[in-house]
Design a protein around this nucleic acid. Structure first.
Length: 262
DNA sequence: ATGGTTGATCGTCAA
């Protein structure tokens, strides 16, 4: 069974429900993972998604911040919803599809402005969160699993518009990249997007604060699709839907897609 | 070094 999966930081699922519906109609992924829903689950506009065939949902929400959801055309069974680093935030949900594949959907803390945990508590929380992910994957190495989400780290030099200018900017600092890589390696996760698109600049986020995002193109690749090593060879066809950044009243993130022959 | 924009919520925090 082949299926296509997408991940998208929607930055308010209620405000941008029309954009979610447009993506589902135009691209029809089998599974869509959303982050930053900024809504309790009971206030997410799930009826509209169900009307398009996405009748199966696992989600965690909270008022105003965070919030993750997995929409699926086929049944999905919730298998976990971890509060890594005990932040009390709705940042993770995991479900198992009928083919046995477990989908982890993450929204890693952004980490605030200053990349120093001594003066910025949020940066410390981000590092702690990534360390907790590492520990969890070390304790139980994932198999037949896919991990997606807004991981809020752009690990490679060609994942940012200027490696040199971002070395001290949160999302691309060496300490974050090290924590990110440790979590990835602890799980034996393969970066599916870079397996399919091995070289060249690739971004999934452009700041609202940067005018003329398209021409300036000061983007970062913060949104990721990983697969456990046992199924990584089944992945193909990764795409980053850059044009979605130009939709009306857009999210600052765009969807990232991958397909799997399993 | 600073400010730039957006969203939730309703003065301010988070991103």
């Amino acid at each position: 069974m082949a299926f296509t999966l997408a991940t998208w930081n929607i930055n308010s699922v209620r405000l941008r429900a029309p954009l979610v519906l447009r993506l589902l109609e135009e691209e029809a992924p089998d599974v869509l993972c959303l982050q930053e829903c900024k809504s309790p689950v009971e206030k997410m506009p799930l009826e509209g998604f169900a009307a398009l065939g996405y009748r199966h949902v696992v989600a965690r929400g909270q008022r105003g911040y965070n919030g993750v959801a997995i929409l699926s055309k086929t049944p999905i069974e919730e298998v976990a919803a971890h509060d890594y680093a005990s932040l009390g935030h709705a940042r993770h949900i995991a479900g198992r599809l009928e083919n046995g594949v477990v989908v982890h959907n993450f929204y890693v803390p952004a980490g605030g402005d200053k990349p120093d945990r001594e003066v910025n508590e949020k940066f410390g929380q981000k590092l702690d969160y990534l360390a907790a992910m590492r520990d969890a994957f070390h304790a139980e190495r994932p198999e037949r699993s896919i991990l997606v989400g807004d991981l809020n780290v752009a690990p490679r030099e060609d994942d940012v518009w200027s490696h040199k200018q971002l070395l001290r900017v949160v999302s691309h600092t060496p300490v974050e990249v090290n924590h990110f890589t440790d979590a990835q390696e602890a799980g034996g996760w393969v970066d599916v997007t870079r397996q399919d698109i091995p070289s060249g600049r690739l971004y999934s986020w452009w700041s609202y604060r940067s005018p003329d995002w398209q021409a300036a193109d000061k983007g970062r690749r913060l949104d990721h699709v990983w697969a456990s090593a046992d199924i990584a060879s089944a992945a193909h066809g990764s795409r980053v839907l850059r044009d979605v950044r130009g939709w009306e009243q857009p999210s600052d993130h765009v969807p990232v897609f991958a397909s799997f022959d399993l």
